[in-house]
Amino acid sequence: MLTPDPLLISVTIFVVAFFVGYELITKVPPTLHTPLMSGSNAISGIVLIGAVIVAGRGHSDLGIVLGTGAVALATVNVVGGFLVTDRMLRMFRSRESQQRRPKAGSPSDSPQDPGDKR
């Protein structure tokens, strides 16, 4: 049986995913564009997986050095990106949830968040 070129499969996946992303992100309202950017940035930290493969394959010393550097950089991207996005989104409150807790202290440090319980 003939199998398609793996590059062609990769490109197909890329194109389809790009269009899915385009459709989804067009619907994100401007008010959430900053969290969208930091959140999607965290998703691009997916290259951590590639970094893990390169660092853990134990191929050569140079590979390990490059891989470990990539793991560290991508982890900053993933961990920092998701956490800071969550911190921002926690601040987006509706009028009702604000009335339930009229005096907001430091929003970013409160462990309990009213906006979460809806």
Binding site: S10, A17, F18, G21, S40, S44, I46, G50, I53
Partner: peptide, 25 residues
């Protein structure tokens, strides 16, 4: 692109989603 090199689909998908997002913005 790194995903294409490693033939790792999740990298390709996630990278494409982010690429689209940045382009729209």
């Amino acid at each position: 692109a790194a995903g294409v090199v490693l033939q790792n689909n999740i990298l390709i998908i996630a990278g494409a989603l982010v690429g689209a997002s940045g382009l729209i913005l």
